[in-house]
Write a protein that binds this DNA or RNA. Structure first.
Lengths: 124, 124
DNA sequence: CAGCATCCTACGGGATACTG
DNA sequence: CAGTATCCCGTAGGATGCTG
């Protein structure tokens, strides 16, 4: 992967975006892989809108999730660059989670999926 | 990227579209569930654009997939209303697969995901 | 509070063989 | 050609307990 960029905010030129059937499928697949996981979407929707939540906040917000699963999904999304983890070194510990810029950028894509799902009834 | 549908555009009334965090997450989850499956996206991208393909066409187009998997993913998408299965009663058998209207409507949503994925390098 | 470590099970999905 | 039918395995993810 090309990791040559450094702090280039707004790329003036868009990507070539030449997708073959396979590369497009592959691209969407890798995108979906980042979202796969029993709890990622719930977490995501709780963080959308710039919300900053502590681990315990998320636990309370999502009662059905276990600690193991919560931390696992958060860590994966952190590793994937979707979620930012902020550690406040203090006792008792305090760790906060929020979305990265890229994570926020997911919103329209998920909206598109919702819109598609809503079409089901109309379109039959 | 709105596609101008030549046919039906009948929305008796726009959906309320009032999503809570949970219902939105749930909605996207169920949408994603329809797309989960090792081969669904590859199949989808081969059927986009109104392509009508026989079972054997798909087998040839996707060499890595096994018959069991191919039929399984196709059947699931058929059941979900994404794919249409057309059986020609003749010997030897001939079965064709294409997308339903709703299946075609997936295109913009997947595009949105691709766009998001492409943002990764630009952002941060 | 914010986690890590184990154990365990359901199931998605691969390989292979058979059939109308 | 267009599928079934079995067998098998890796892993996502649940339950439970411990810790800095």
């Amino acid at each position: 992967m090309t990791r040559t960029d450094k702090k280039v905010r707004h790329s003036p030129k868009g990507k070539p975006k030449a997708y073959t059937r396979e590369s497009a499928a592959e691209g969407v697949e890798t995108a979906l892989k980042l979202l796969e996981g029993r709890w990622k979407l719930v977490i995501l929707f709780h963080l959308f809108g710039g919300n900053v939540l502590r681990f315990s906040d998320l636990e309370r917000a999502i009662p059905a999730v276990s600690q193991k699963m919560l931390i696992q999904q958060l860590r994966q999304m952190e590793r994937d660059g979707i979620v930012r983890r902020i550690v406040h070194h203090q006792v008792p510990p305090k760790v906060e989670y929020c979305l990265t810029e890229w994570g926020q950028a997911l919103c329209p894509a998920l909206d598109a999926l919702l819109t598609w799902a809503a079409l089901r009834d109309d379109l039959q």
